[in-house]
Amino acid sequence: MTTPPGWYTDPGQIPDHPPQERWWDGNAWTEHRRPAGFPPVPPPPPGRAGRGPLIAGLVGAVVLVAALAVGAVLLLGADDDESGPDEAGPEPGASAPKDPEEKEPAPEAPPSEEPELPTEPPEGDQPKPADGVRLPVLNGWEGSGGSVAIGTYKCPGDAHEKCLRGGSSIMEAEEKGSAEEIAGTDVERNAKSAYNADTYGGITSHKVLKKGKVKVAGQDGYRVRWKIKNKIKPDAYVESVAFEHPDGSGKMLVVRSGFDIHKDAPPLSDMDKLIDGISRGSAEDDGSRENV
């Protein structure tokens, strides 16, 4: 499953240096960094959206989609593409004769050092990252409080893309209603987003494994968990858990999780631990409060 684009704790953080964040574009780490603690405003993603599971969030919703201050660091290869002319231009005032048969080359766009940060999040149907709550960073997992993930591998439908064995993101609910209504509606959206047809061939069937009330950060919530079959393996478990924000605002939040069914994927019990460990706090937390 793929982690959604977003600012996350830099996996290449140098010890004894000020903490910084790095942009995850949905597929790989880019070279864009910023000091930790900025407001959660993403830069315009330079490439195509991330593929595979996670968490749609790991997110727009926080996404967090965000990177990692844990010891075991995964650097998801981002190619350093630098473009520019191979030779310097002609001296001022100099000119060269033109061959009438020769076509004018297309002008090259000048390379940019850093993307401009927009003042508002980009438009689209991506859910909004939740603020004021955080997921635990379980042993072996990586991420920030808004989005966590584990395990990378070449996507089954595209070996040039990176997918995740497991991931979870916390975000604002996209619709209004009770926790039961929101979780029941969101789980299908979660499944199709985390295990999209381009990467996994499409979902052929699903089975409801669990649904019912659950406590989340001291609030009444509701969970719906599916087991899905994909045309292209692996199959997977997906879950959506909806609950009211513990700040008393009445805002509804949803946690989207997705785990591959694979020997290298996390145990299904981690899905319960993630929900049990949700607490109040900044979604941009660096994950130092690890749930052991």
Rank of each mutant, 00 (worst) to 15 (best):
M1I: 12
T2E: 09
P4Y: 02
P4F: 03
P5I: 12
G6R: 02
Y8L: 06
Y8F: 08
P11L: 11
P11C: 09
P11F: 06
I14N: 04
D16M: 12
P18F: 09
P19W: 13
Q20K: 15
Q20C: 06
R22C: 01
W23S: 02
W24F: 15
A28Y: 04
W29V: 06
E31C: 01
H32P: 00
P35Q: 11
A36Q: 09
P42H: 07
P44I: 15
R48I: 13
L54H: 04
I55S: 05
V59K: 02
A61C: 06
A61K: 01
V62F: 00
L64W: 02
A67Y: 03
A69F: 02
A69R: 07
G71P: 10
V73L: 10
L76E: 03
L76P: 04
D80S: 13
E82G: 11
S83P: 00
G84L: 11
G84N: 10
P85I: 07
P90S: 11
P92T: 08
G93Q: 13
A96L: 13
K98Y: 01
D99S: 14
E101P: 02
K103D: 15
A106D: 14
A109G: 12
S112N: 07
S112R: 15
E114S: 08
P115N: 11
P118A: 11
T119P: 00
E120Q: 14
P121M: 10
P122Y: 09
G124R: 06
P127L: 13
G132I: 12
V133E: 00
W141F: 08
G145Q: 03
V148Q: 05
I150L: 13
G151R: 06
K154P: 08
C155P: 06
G157V: 08
D158I: 13
D158Y: 04
H160S: 15
K162M: 10
K162W: 01
L164C: 03
G167R: 02
I170G: 02
M171T: 07
E174P: 00
K176L: 05
G177K: 09
G177W: 05
S178L: 09
I182N: 01
A183C: 08
K192W: 01
S193Y: 02
Y195K: 04
D198A: 14
D198Y: 03
D198H: 07
G201N: 09
G202L: 12
G202T: 11
T204F: 02
T204W: 00
H206E: 12
K210R: 15
K211R: 12
G212M: 12
K215H: 01
A217V: 06
A217C: 11
Q219T: 13
Q219A: 05
R225V: 12
R225F: 00
R225I: 03
K227E: 14
I228A: 06
K229D: 09
K229Y: 00
D235G: 06
D235K: 11
A236R: 00
Y237A: 04
Y237C: 03
E239W: 01
S240R: 02
H245L: 07
D247M: 09
G248R: 14
S249H: 05
M252R: 12
V255Y: 01
F259M: 12
I261V: 15
K263G: 04
D272S: 13
L274D: 05
G277Q: 10
G277T: 11
G281F: 03
G281V: 08
D285K: 03
D286T: 08
G287L: 09
R289Q: 14
E290R: 15
N291A: 14
V292R: 12
V292T: 09
